[in-house]
Amino acid sequence: MEGAEIVRLNLRINGQPHEVDDVWEGESLLYVLRERLGLPGSKNACEQGECGSCSIYLDGQLVCACLVLAGQAEDREVVTVEGLGGSNDLHPVQEAFLEAGAVQCGFCTPGLIVAAHELLSRRPDPSESEIREALAGNLCRCTGYEKIIDAVSLAGRKMAGGST
């Protein structure tokens, strides 16, 4: 691109090292994940930090990938929804979202699953209010959130049951 600085990026994603070439310095980590690395599980409903659909872990911290410049992820560890569980080994949080009926269009779902995973990792048995506070940054337009709250409680119970 004319007048643009192009960089090479090294980072670890879901446990694997990745080297990405030709990254324009203005690209977000979300863009690199989705468009350069074939990991479109992290979603892009606003790309301005308002919806949580792009929630990922960066060095163990929950962040909005749309607000992280790709260059800031150099040498760091990224975990996306794809890294939590696949179709043959669903994580209990993913399983709980299905069982509770918390998925409609599903566009909010990957971000909510990562955010719920983060909540449950520090609060294994959250109260309803704690769930609401923790997920207040994740918008969902379809479900009215009732079943998402059910899903998070259920996931907590599943995880306490030792299934993962």
């Binding site: 990991l39 479109p40 599980g41 979603k43 929804v81 794809e82 993913q94 599903g106 566009f107 779902t109």
Partner: peptide, 14 residues
């Protein structure tokens, strides 16, 4: 449901 919770579901933007 399964592809939607794993991130595999292909939305038009994907």
């Amino acid at each position: 449901g399964v592809p939607k919770v794993t991130g595999d579901f292909a939305y038009s933007s994907d």
